[in-house]
Amino acid sequence: MNDGPVSTFQFLGLTFSTANVVSGLVVFLLVFAVVFFTSRHLALKPTKGQNFLEWLIEFTNGILKGSIPANQVSSFGLYGFTLFLFLFLSNQLGLFLQLTFHGATIVRSPTSDPIVTLTFSLMTLMLAQFAGVQRLGYKKHFANYLKPFVFWLPISIFEEFTNFLTLGLRIFGVIFSGEMLLKLIWGLATSHGIATMIVAVPIEMVWQGFSAFLGAIQAFVFVTLSSVYISQKIEVEE
């Protein structure tokens, strides 16, 4: 991760990290490939791929239905679906594929970088704000900050900040630490030849499996919390 040089490049006056851009593109292509190839030859009587895709859609819609009123779920369904798939594959990518080029990492989990997770967190909160204004109008939307009483305002505003940070950093922390431990175990495995290899490789495999599980849980949690934050904004607080 942060050992070794970080490869960056400049574009339009902004600095980009090569690792994030390349892994982001990889995840982008993976998600698109999965969705594209499972949605071919749609039929009323679904076949294998369509079944899987529909199951996935039902699953993410189910997450959203947990907190958003059922009649509003359809407007956030696509967001929840894309978010879940993107985060899930991002979390898994680094567990199976870590590429280094000239000493700098270029492919790893994008979600092991806080800027990526905070970007998604920010996107969710922006969507929540937008949906709140769209559904309730400016007046009612901002009146929600003054509930249950006027002096609650600082806490409400502070809450937005904490929501933003906790939502983004939770997933980052889990994925980052998971990858870091993978690297540590691998370092241990290669440190004293065959003897440490025999001991460390099973541990590495176990940790990989556990991280895969954690990655799935974190993607699920992220979408769940997103729907909770959105639902808070599209309802008038009592």
């Binding site: 902004l14 982001g24 806080p114 996107m123």
Partner: peptide
């Protein structure tokens, strides 16, 4: 955060990508 350098270009890239 975690002593890491954050590149805000990535943020833009991920928003566009997403």
């Amino acid at each position: 955060v975690a002593g890491q350098t954050l590149y805000f270009g990535d943020s833009l890239f991920y928003i566009v990508c997403f």
